[in-house]
Each structure stands twice: as structure tokens, then as C-alpha cells.
Amino acid sequence: MSDTPEFKPLRTLAPSTAPGELVMPKTADELLYEEVERGLLFTKVESMVGWAMNQARANAIWPLSFGLACCAIEMMAIAGPRFDVSRFGAEVFRGSPRQADLMIVAGRVSIKMAPVVRQLYEQMPDPKWVIAMGACSSCGGVFNNFAILQGVDKIVPVDVYVPGCPPRPEALLHGIMKLQEKILASKPEIGPIPRKRVLKQKGVA
């Protein structure tokens, strides 16, 4: 029947063996091998370090405590008692950009403020991420006029856009979780970035 939804439990049990099929008991050697395989992780050292670094970065994001407009109040609310962002490891709001690795652009960016935002972004140490929170910082929102930058992505690279005016705190939490997914899936840079590449990024070589 097509209209009864298929029941999908979160974890399915292993299919039971067909009746009548003969199951050989495992030998002591085979049991030993299985035990060893279960306890060990065979991988390259590099990818394991990368995995560990991604885990560390994703689960301890330090946002910059930097609010621009209305959305900043909702950003403060996620640190408050009801929404409690520390459940996702992002509660250490830093006052200085040099100690932070996530910039939540919470609010409208005016033309006068744009250079400041850019400078703050450049002061943050690598690796760094940006969340554009709200309609204004994503695309200008309701203020399509001479004074407001139409989207903060014109001055800094944005990783996650959170829509809403203002987004509910739950939406911002979802944005942070999306960012965690993105961090976990990324290829981490280990050690200092090779100088050649830095020059290339700057367009020198």
C-alpha cells in the first residue's frame, strides 16, 4: 500500500539468518581477530590528526561578541538561560577579534561601518568563519537604500546565512550547527600555511 508510510526505525537490527541455513560457530581465532579489529582504528596519521582538529574546532567555536543592530539582541538571547548556546560549545563570546574564530554579523552593516567590519575580520586569526545573521546582513533586508550595504558578503566571505528579521534564536542555533557540519567536512590545514600559497592568495605570485 502506497499511503502507509514505510516504517524506518533509526537503527535497524541485522537481518536474521534465513531459517534452515546452517551457521558455523566461529573459531577462537576468528573471534580474536574480530575483537582486535573492533578495538583498533587503522588510518593515516594525517587524516586522524585532521579529524581530531576538525572535531576540536567544530565543538569549541568562540564567537566574537559583536552586535550591530536588532539581531544582536537575539544573539544575546542565545547566550541567555532559555536557549543556552553552550550546549553546542559556542558560549565563549570574546570581546577581542584576536581571540575569536567566528564572527556573527548580527545586524545591518552601514556604509560607514563596512570598513570596520572588514578590519575586524582581518584581525581574527585563521581559521575563521562568518555567519550572516538576519535579512540585513544577508542581502540588505528591508533597507534597500543609500546608507546600507546590500549584504555583508560584499566585504567578507560568508559561510552560513541565517534568514529572518530577526531570526529566532533557534534559527541561529541551527546556523551554528550547520557551521559545525561544514567545519567537520572541511579539509583542515595543519601547521603553518606554505608561504607560496599565502603569496598566491594575496595575488603576489
Binding site: 543592530a69 536588532c70 545591518r108 552601514s110 560607514k112 528591508v142 533597507f143 543609500f146 546608507a147 546600507i148
Partner: peptide, 26 residues
């Protein structure tokens, strides 16, 4: 001051009275 100048007074001249109410929230 002025780092958050949004041009609301100008924008209100381009919106009807009812459309201006959401600006005042902000």
C-alpha cells in the same frame, strides 16, 4: 555616532504610512 545609519527617514518618504510601521520596530 552614525555607524548604524540606516536612512529610515529618507526611506519613509518612499513608503506608505502603513509600510513605515515595520521600520519603526527596527
Amino acid at each position: 555616532v552614525g555607524y548604524l545609519h540606516t536612512g529610515m527617514e529618507k526611506q519613509a518618504e518612499y513608503k506608505t504610512y502603513t509600510q513605515s510601521i515595520p521600520q519603526t520596530d527596527r
